[in-house]
Nucleic acid binder design. Structure first.
Lengths: 149, 149
DNA sequence: AAAGATTGAATTATCAATCTTG
DNA sequence: CAAGATTGATAATTCAATCTTT
């Protein structure tokens, strides 16, 4: 199994993916550095493409996508932070910026007056759809290079 | 082949690693999200461990390690930036901090008076060796989980 | 007191402009 | 003018402290 499979919260989906890995020699360092290189390269390409097209960075995409997938297109602040893997405080500020751009709005939580929902707006949904092809192009290219179907 | 193999600049080494990947269905999005999750999780664990032990962050390790591997334990600023995958400007500041900590020193380049070398100091080498086991523990754990030798 | 979320101060990263040398 | 590297202004991230509600 490849590193990424184990940590996947998405491998359960209908789209089954099976990674088989054989390492002839157990050089963990080289394996890990290869992994880091792949990540930096692909993420860098995606960020460059988005910037080129005048679109927001990857972090915004992650937030918008998480909201898009959620029931009623809304998540608690805490849940957003968990999805995006960012500190709570960083999330507050990031959501501030995305909200200022009109891509999401905050709403109170009926049952719990401490909390706040982040809710995807129609504008946010529209932008998400504009970002997707740019994002997907690079991901697909990266995966084709390694021999995917 | 796994994503990471293709992008590896290290796969040429004596420690041959062969990743074979088969995806039964071509769900690139799920594959990619698995990859992102793996990266965020493992890097987060390493950073947490380093902080716990009172050691510098991963970025410092990357710089020190690159210098350690280089001939005469030195690299041009540009070369360091390439190894670590960071902007030139960010590299200047990062090297400033590491230099202030005494872990490396700048030296002029004989042939090219524009340039500067970053040279690993003995203190830097010593710290690198203290960071290594903390770093390696997590990497090894991550790779064992996916069935490596 | 603990959980959810925000704010202020300090660190770190990014963008454009600058300076020196080739 | 292009390459190597740094600097200044700006934006984003992190840490600790705060505020409200449970």
């Amino acid at each position: 199994m490849c590193i990424s499979t184990y940590y996947s919260a998405y491998a359960h989906s209908a789209a089954t993916l099976i990674f088989m890995t054989a390492r002839l020699k157990g050089d963990d360092l080289a394996t890990w550095r290869a992994f880091l290189n792949a990540h930096a390269t692909i993420v860098g390409q995606i960020e460059a493409d988005l910037h080129q097209e005048g679109l927001p960075p990857l972090a915004w995409y992650d937030v918008l996508w998480a909201l898009h997938e959620a029931p009623d297109r809304r998540l608690r602040m805490r849940e957003v932070a968990d999805h995006v893997v960012l500190t709570r405080t960083g999330m507050t500020r990031l959501v501030d910026r995305i909200e200022a751009a009109g891509l999401l709005r905050r709403e109170p939580v009926p049952d719990d007056r401490r909390g706040a929902f982040a809710v995807l707006t129609d504008e946010g949904d529209a932008l998400l759809r504009r970002m997707w092809p740019v994002y997907a192009r690079r991901v697909r290219a990266a995966l084709e290079r390694v021999g995917g179907t």
